[in-house]
Design a protein around this nucleic acid. Sequence first.
DNA 1: GCACCTCTTGTTACCGGTAACATTCTACGC
DNA 2: GCGTAGAATGTTACCGGTAACAAGAGGTGC
Lengths: 368, 368
Amino acid sequence: MHPDAGRTRAVDPEPRVEAAEGAQEPATRASAGARPATIYDVATMAGVSHQTVSRYLKGYEGIRPETRERVVQALDALDYRPNLTARTLTTGRSHRIGALTHELDQFGPSRIVQGAAAAAREAGYLLDIVTLDMSDARAIAKALSLVRQHDLAGILAFSSTDEMTRAFEAADFKVPVYLGTEEDDAFSDRSELTSVGIPALVGHLAELGHRRVLHVAGPSRWAAARNRARAFEVAVDAHGMRSTGVIHGDWSARSGHEAIAGLPGERLDFTAVVAANDQMALGVMLALAERGLRVPEDVSVTGVDDIPEAAYFSPPLTTLSVDFVEQGRVAFQQLLGRVVGTPPPDAVALPSHLVVRRSTAAAARSLK
Amino acid sequence: MHPDAGRTRAVDPEPRVEAAEGAQEPATRASAGARPATIYDVATMAGVSHQTVSRYLKGYEGIRPETRERVVQALDALDYRPNLTARTLTTGRSHRIGALTHELDQFGPSRIVQGAAAAAREAGYLLDIVTLDMSDARAIAKALSLVRQHDLAGILAFSSTDEMTRAFEAADFKVPVYLGTEEDDAFSDRSELTSVGIPALVGHLAELGHRRVLHVAGPSRWAAARNRARAFEVAVDAHGMRSTGVIHGDWSARSGHEAIAGLPGERLDFTAVVAANDQMALGVMLALAERGLRVPEDVSVTGVDDIPEAAYFSPPLTTLSVDFVEQGRVAFQQLLGRVVGTPPPDAVALPSHLVVRRSTAAAARSLK
DNA sequence: GCACCTCTTGTTACCGGTAACATTCTACGC
DNA sequence: GCGTAGAATGTTACCGGTAACAAGAGGTGC
């Protein structure tokens, strides 16, 4: 009859006392420093079996109101919190999502992670972050093996490189995986590349009368970089402009600077530079200044991301504002849908909009 | 005699077959898509009890070489990986560390997290990140309760505000907590404030002949901001200079801009501005330019952090380089020491060094 | 030659949940 | 008034490890 029969529990001798008094001083009930209450403690206090408690917690309806009431009271009096580890062990499903990312110090990825983490928390999940060198296949393999041991409910992989994508395809996870790479492959399905917003950017330059444009792209290993570069080429063609070249940087301001600084004089034959992110745009602007070209009088410069600092560059940067936090949030929700088996919400196009600042102006410089 | 006696396992009927063949084709052993092997599977295959396997895994020495060999072979043949969830349930110690942080998109915090995550991974731990609004007591409480359920081995809290510190003191965690707030309170113990490096920065300005300096500080809720402000005041005094004021921003470039833009004309009575981070310095520089003051000819400007972009500001920023990644790494190791009970390595002073760029120059402007 | 000790190895219980099956209780029909 | 279906609740097993104790094997002392 005793619901704890068959399970001896080597806990503190008199939890009953505290429990019995619980009803009298509910205000201090959660104060005790003792170990957290389990469903067995709750069951004992309510005078039911642990299974009844478990049923209540799962939302089972067929519990007599009077029994239910006792359970609720005990739950409350003992300040019960489910032990997620135990739950994971039996169900095989955890409440943790792995977030694989490199370069957490970069604006986009870090904002995405932030959005995903916030969404995760709202859903009762925690984000396990695994930073790794996305270009090192061995490091990736090691990280994936670690991840596997940790019983994750699913995996989010952001800002992925080709190595990353390949490693994932080979990994054969038993849990859902969401590879977030901007618009990435969805990209190829669309005739219009509105998702990236690059067309808007290029269109803006076209309106200002620019005809010759240079693109400073990200590393070609990154899907995001390739997509932006492709969108650039397409948009330039669409507006009857000419691309005077694509130089690949590594997302850093330094690489943007080098892209321009290393250019032979005869190749400074453009009136606008479209950088694939704001940091590279910053480097580009400094390098242009060092070569005696004024922004925007001689050359217009644009970025992508709209990092908070972009508005305070000298001059403030015309760029594409991208809602990374929302992107991370959506990514998590997509993944969660797959994790719990409900159809995920429709994938929405990455929202981005043009922010015009002082780094772009009408093309005035005559070339050659 | 059968080591599995008493435990019926409702798994696939013939794992033995695969196991028996394991020795013949070890190359493909890990290929099977079946569920991961447990110590019971290993024990069966090796013909020992699960406890012997467990002992081997824990590094127990007293196992006969011949027995040990069988275990090793089975372990390898089945590609055994321990189930961390089960281990956590019994031992009560997980291999996950919670990282509480706000503003993951800010350079310092995100780098710190990156360092901590890397160090964690090397030690076989995973970092669970919880982003939260550090100034909202209720949000903090909610996050802490979530954290509690997730069986974390310890908690790292970075970039903390006063609310945060208070919430932690009240929370009474059962696991070790490391509150990383730069040099924070250790600060008050030291007569020399070398840890922050602010003195070096101020000294640099003093050498350039500056006598009147403005400080644009971080939000006063942040310990880091207060420390930097205090270090500034002390250093200014030490060099016989004068502080013309301390304006509190919120770490953003926007707030740096506002600090200067909002200043009445008669308060532009300084020849140098020390901003508490690089972003605010950026805003300061733009605002100065808008008020007709050239950097560095009229006013010198310095930052703190040495974000990668700082070298490409216009002009490139003189700042304090801080090794945040190392800081995160150290924080994790300190915490890990407490988690496993070994004395943590000595806390080292936060390394930082002055990086002189073009935003500082000799004081030339004559004031009034 | 037998008691005894040590070295190895095996057995059982337990962590805190969930799942499947078993049992008791209640209400209803005849 | 009793058999029985269905609702409510209890019991047992299990997830995959670890811990404590138990037991078998081999060697030593007298």
